[in-house]
Amino acid sequence: MKFSIGGPLKLAFRPWVEGLENVPSQGPAILASNHLSFSDSLFLPAVLDRKITFIAKSEYFTTPGIKGRLTAAFFKGVGQLPVDRSGARGAGEAAIKSGIGVIERGELFGIYPEGTRSPDGRLYRGKPGGLARVALATGAPVIPVAMIDTEKIQPPGKVVPKLMRPGIRIGKPLDFSRYSGMEHDRFVLRAVTDEVMYEIMKLSGQEYVDIYATAAKRQIAEAAKAEREAAKAEARAVKDAGDKGGTEQERSGS
C-alpha cells in the first residue's frame, strides 16, 4: 500500500526533499520530525525508499464496521503501529516498547517528539520520554526531519487537501552513544530531546516555544472559550439595554 499511495501522492503534490542521502539505505534509525498536519505521516513515507513505522492510537485499528476496517487497513498500509493509549503512563511505555521493537528489527522508526500536532505552526517543546529513551536504549542514530508547509495543505479539521508543494528537510544523523545506559536519567533525556528539537528548529525555520503543544492547545481552547463567553455576555447586555429602553418608552408614553 505504501507504493500505491506514495506514487499518486508524489505525482499530485510534487513534494521537494533535501537531505535524502542522510537516511541510511539499511539498518535502524529514528526519524524525529516536527508535526504540522495529519498528512506528515503520508508525505514522509512517500519520499523514502524504505518503510518507516510510526505510532498510532489503537482506536484507529479497532473501530467496528466497514469504515473502521477501511481505516485500519489504511493505517496498516502506511506503516502505522497501534498502541493502546488508555492511561498516560501505560501509553508511553507501550510506545517506547514498540519503538524499540522496530529498531531491533533493523527498520526505520518515525516519531513526533512534540507528541501532537502544532496548533499554530510553531515548534513546541519535545517530550523526553519516547524519543530519547528509544534512542538511548537501542543506540540507533536520530535523524531530525522538518516538514514544511504541510499545515497549509490540510489544516486541522479540513478533509479535502489543497494542492500545493510541501517540503521535507532531512538533517544529518545525531549520535547519542555518549549517553549509553542512561535512558532512565531524566536530565539526560531532557538534554537529548532538546538537542534534537534544536536541529529540527534549524531545519524548519519555525519559531520555537518552550512549552508543550498540549499545554498550548489548552491555552488556545480556554482563550477561545473566554472570547465566546465575553461575546455572549456583550450580546445579553445589549439585549437587556434594548429591553430596558423599550420598557421606559412604554412607561413614558402611558
Rank of each mutant, 00 (worst) to 15 (best):
P144L: 01
L189C: 11
I100A: 03
V209W: 12
F109D: 07
P166F: 03
K152T: 13
L136K: 08
A95N: 05
R125T: 00
R133Y: 03
P113I: 00
A94H: 01
K202W: 05
G92I: 02
M201C: 10
P141K: 09
I143S: 11
A88T: 05
I103Y: 09
D185F: 01
F109Q: 02
G171Q: 10
E93S: 00
K172W: 08
P113Y: 00
L174D: 12
Y179T: 11
S204K: 02
S118N: 06
S204W: 00
S204P: 12
R186I: 01
E151T: 08
I103M: 10
V159W: 12
P166D: 03
K152A: 12
F187S: 14
I96V: 13
P156T: 09
E183D: 14
M197C: 06
P166Y: 04
A91D: 02
A146S: 08
R190V: 02
I143D: 13
E151P: 01
A88Y: 08
Y198R: 13
E93V: 01
G205I: 08
P128Q: 08
R117Q: 13
P128G: 06
K152N: 13
R165T: 15
K172E: 15
R122F: 03
I170L: 12
I148Y: 06
G171T: 07
E151G: 09
R122H: 14
D210F: 03
A137W: 01
R186A: 02
Y208C: 07
I168H: 07
F187K: 15
L108E: 07
A137V: 00
A140N: 11
R117K: 15
Q206T: 03
P155A: 07
V142Q: 07
I96F: 03
E207N: 11
E183Q: 15
R117F: 03
L131K: 04
L131Y: 07
A140Q: 07
E151W: 06
P155R: 13
G101I: 03
A88Q: 14
P128R: 13
R125W: 04
S180D: 11
M164P: 06
H184V: 02
D120H: 15
M147A: 03
K162P: 07
S98D: 09
F176K: 06
G181I: 09
F187R: 12
